[in-house]
């Protein structure tokens, strides 16, 4: 029964969500809105579960013997405590400790991680774009044209470079992308149908 009930709920709601797309009646819309509300409510609870899972996980490591991981877990638990206390007891508006920490600690740290992309793109480009064969040469030349075409320098070198870059993006690249998109869309449809019909049950945890 503990497996059948979720499968039944999934089948009923999945079928309803499919059918209601074609039914404009108010009753259908009202039920649809109610389902959307419930999804958000359930998700909010899942965040609570996530927070508990996070705290438990790091509490175990912080009290354990793994010297490599322990300092990081202690730091995470401290961070959670500080942000929680600051947000709950001293407000979250401008001028509060929470806001200051958000602006001056969290935001710069996250921006740092994002900016790492430029370094990784550079090293990946150095290693990855090798003219090993004729296909790789095509890829390499296309990459250089697109990169030049997306910056003012490309226009300075020749007005054809931005045009060529646009063509590469809008014709060959787009054709390949659309092919992949169609495949993904069909995969999505098939998987969705398997989920609705109860063929795909992994999301319940195992087969």
């Amino acid at each position: 029964m503990h497996r059948k009930l979720p499968l039944l709920i999934c089948f009923a709601l999945g079928t309803f969500m499919l059918v209601q797309f074609f039914v404009p009646h108010k009753a259908s819309t009202a039920l649809y809105e109610a389902i959307l509300d419930w999804v958000q409510i359930i998700y909010a609870f899942s965040l609570l579960v996530g927070a508990m899972m996070l705290i438990k996980h790091h509490a175990v490591i912080a009290s354990g013997r793994d010297a490599k991981e322990r300092p990081f877990s202690i730091l995470i638990l401290m961070g959670i405590t500080v942000m929680l206390v600051a947000g709950l007891f001293f407000g979250r508006g401008e001028g509060t400790v929470f806001h200051w920490l958000f602006q001056n600690v969290q935001a710069p740290m996250q921006a740092t991680m994002f900016s790492l992309l430029s370094f990784f793109v550079a090293s990946a480009a150095y290693r990855g774009f090798r003219a090993r064969n004729s296909q790789a040469i095509f890829l390499l030349v296309a990459a250089i044209i697109v990169m030049l075409g997306r910056i003012p320098v490309g226009e300075i070198i020749s007005s054809y470079i931005p045009k060529a870059a646009d063509w590469i993006l809008n014709v060959p690249s787009m054709a390949a992308r659309r092919g992949i998109y169609i495949g993904i869309a069909l995969g999505t449809i098939a998987t969705s149908l398997r989920v609705i019909l109860g063929i795909e049950r992994t999301y319940l945890g195992g087969k």
Binding site: V121, Y126, R130, I151, P152
Partner: peptide
């Protein structure tokens, strides 16, 4: 910021060329 972006793009192109030279 566009000057910086131009610099980064050109640098990546140079890296690709250097990478290929090293390989050859």
């Amino acid at each position: 910021g566009m000057d910086a972006q131009s610099g980064a793009h050109i640098f990546v192109i140079i890296l690709i060329l250097v990478g290929n030279t090293v390989m050859i």
